[in-house]
Design a protein around this nucleic acid. Structure first.
Lengths: 211, 211
DNA sequence: ACGATATGAATGAATG
DNA sequence: CATTCATTCATATCGT
């Protein structure tokens, strides 16, 4: 994947705070629609995969968008749509790939889905604390458990994010035909958290920006 | 995402289409993206024009792609995209030719076309003139049931991700997202669940920031 | 070999 | 959530 990232970072030309990373070549996109920055994408994917966020509540959406706003212009609706689309398209991909080639998978009705995948880290890693953070409750908890739709819909969540540090951005990296499966690298910067032993609500912290 | 991580890695040995499609000219190409053979195009157009297929369901897509596979490599997604694009461009073409007297405008990448689109309700069989006459009723594109995904769906997971922190050595994108992130914990007990709070909630304060 | 065009692919935004 | 529209990017193909 990603053989040629040759262009645009689409930093919105006006309301953009700052791109704390990467090129941002200012491709002068001036899109009418939100063009997420790589940082925003990364965080969103982290929430999606590492924290199991699928359909964030309005409250979460506000927080997420607030946090993402430091990486570029964003609104709550963008976050909302992103999660919806991401989930839908993941499902769509499955649809396309099922029962191709006239062979049918013998799928025998998963009576009990072992949803202990990585929806929420049962295997917590205590002791890790984000760099330069006190105990200010950096408790990034996503939704735990499956709450909405009956059973499935929680995809494996494997895959995602290969933070490839390409040497030069101009040349084509390589046609790596690496065939998915297994994520090739997670963001080491921060790992997911948990909150199963402290269900108390932390109403402090951040509040909704009136914007 | 702006980086267009498209270019999934599904390029494979690419069975020579010419083995089956000896229709017109061979399309020998080892491209990364699907290049339909003439036979595939013919069938697709037949479905489109003669059968009124516009947005095939997942089930139909499976059958169509399976059928087309004998004419060359193809996946369900290709069929999906083909119909989407074909429909969209047909409409676009039609819209462009509504007012322009009679001369052919090159419509070279209309960046800001004024799509005053109105949502027409899936009007099938519009009465086009099929460029390619029907040949064979190759497919049974009717809903035959078999509509029940939602089970296992063996996790394909291609595509995705590519955060590629393309920077030589300075300022990787991973830094400040470890601390003071926003959301400090949601109510795990009953997280207002999956109510469809429409983004209307977030759309109240939308304003034109672009342009 | 280029440049324009056609079209596959991806994704944000909506609507049902 | 499912479907669909709109828009944009990337590239194969073709014309000159």
């Amino acid at each position: 994947m990603e053989s040629h990232l040759q262009q645009q970072q689409h930093q919105q030309a006006q309301n953009d705070q700052d791109s704390s990373s990467k090129g941002s070549f200012l491709c002068r996109q001036s899109s009418r629609r939100w063009t997420p920055t790589t940082d925003q994408i990364r965080i969103l994917k982290d929430l999606y995969y590492n924290n199991g966020v699928r359909s964030p509540s309005a409250d979460q959406i506000q927080r997420i968008s607030s946090r993402l706003r430091q990486y570029g212009k964003i609104e709550g609706r963008n976050v909302f749509y992103w999660f919806q689309n991401h989930k839908a398209r993941e499902r769509q991909k499955k649809m396309f790939s099922t029962s191709t080639t006239d062979h049918h998978v013998p799928m025998q009705r998963p009576t009990s889905i072992t949803l202990a995948n990585n929806k929420f880290p049962t295997n917590i890693t205590p002791g890790y604390s984000p760099p330069s953070s006190s105990s200010t409750g950096v408790l990034t908890v996503g939704q735990i458990g499956n709450y909405g739709y009956g059973s499935i819909t929680m995809e494996k969540s494997f895959r995602d994010c290969s933070i490839s540090a390409c040497g030069s951005s101009t040349a084509s990296a390589s046609e790596s035909l690496s065939h998915n499966l297994g994520w090739v690298g997670i963001d080491p910067a921060y790992s997911s958290s948990y909150s199963f032993f402290e269900p108390k609500r932390f109403m402090d912290g951040i509040h909704e920006e009136g914007q």
